[in-house]
Amino acid sequence: MNKLLLETRELRKTFGALVATDGVDFDVREGETHAVIGPNGAGKTTFIKQISGELRPDSGEIRFAGDDITALPAPQRSHKGLARSFQITSIYREFSALENVALAVQAHAGHSFRFWRAAREDPALTGPAIRILEEIGLDRRKDVLAANLSHGEQRQLEIAMALATRPRLLLLDEPVAGMGTDESQRMIELLATLKGEKTIVLVEHDMDAVFTLADRISVLVYGRIIATGTPVEIRANQEVRAAYLGEDS
């Protein structure tokens, strides 16, 4: 049950004189929802980009399901079962919602050097895509251009695309950022249904979301993890309160 799915060891990344990730050791257990919080500029996005494979660390190691994936490019990590959503909404704006999800299904349905059959009418792609849209509550909007969806729907669509790759680990980069209260409440409910089914790394500013969803929380400050623990432990941690939560309240 408590097997480690993801671990980073001594992860380090610098940009010139700026140390963005400073020797981070980080563990995610199979099945848990592990939140990463920290003040702005703490290096959260840099950290998640190294896990997803968009940035290469200067040194250190990333292991996923027991394999060293430090040098693996992003597409191959996706095939190993790592899926991510982006902090700034990243979808195919000129495709319909269904086409967005169908592409993610297609990415994991063998190679795509198939030149003749119309992909939009292929039930092997649209079938699973529609099921995921139903799960996520977007099925009635499936034929709408992604650009015309509301902000909240676009964020949901991103989660749907991540799920369509049938991941073992979901990396969610601020999924409720920029949402109104209602929208973010709905997103938190959605994520709550995924909790337990999927292993989730949740990078988030919204403390409501973090304390509702997380099994464990790690606090990242200036590129270092200063504490890891259950929500109760983190609330009680003096160092965290001083460094981070204290600033907020």
Binding site: S78, A83, F86, S90, I91, L103, A164
Partner: peptide
């Protein structure tokens, strides 16, 4: 349309 997203989905 979106190269980063395309890499991220595999």
């Amino acid at each position: 349309s979106n190269e980063a997203r395309t890499r991220a989905i595999g």
